[in-house]
């Protein structure tokens, strides 16, 4: 299971947890796994077509998935995935 770091603005959905575990061989599968554990989280980070929202960045071990294979980016068990808002304003 990979570790996913959750920004404060989404921690309401993860019962306040800063880090959660999720399974999947790709980022897309990890998001599906997150959604089954924490319903509602997918709609916050992906748009209606399933693509990553433009103001959300996802990093796999410090690499931006937009510069890798996007939602098809492979994920290893030992990877740390970070969901980082593209902007810095406002979230508590």
């Amino acid at each position: 299971m990979a570790t996913v770091r959750i920004p404060t603005s989404l921690r309401k959905l993860t019962q306040g947890k800063e880090e959660v575990q999720a399974s999947g061989a790709t980022i897309g599968e990890v998001i599906a796994s997150l959604e089954s554990s924490y319903p509602g989280i997918r709609a916050r980070i992906c748009d209606e077509s399933g693509a990553l929202r433009r103001f959300v960045n996802l990093f796999v071990s410090a690499e931006d998935i937009r510069f890798l294979k996007n939602l098809e980016t492979p994920v290893q068990e030992s990877d740390e995935i970070s969901i980082v808002p593209a902007i810095a304003g406002g979230q508590c």
Binding site: S9, R53, F55, P85
Partner: peptide
């Protein structure tokens, strides 16, 4: 929403 892309707001 808490997670948004409107910098400064």
């Amino acid at each position: 929403d808490a997670l948004h892309g409107l910098e400064g707001l």
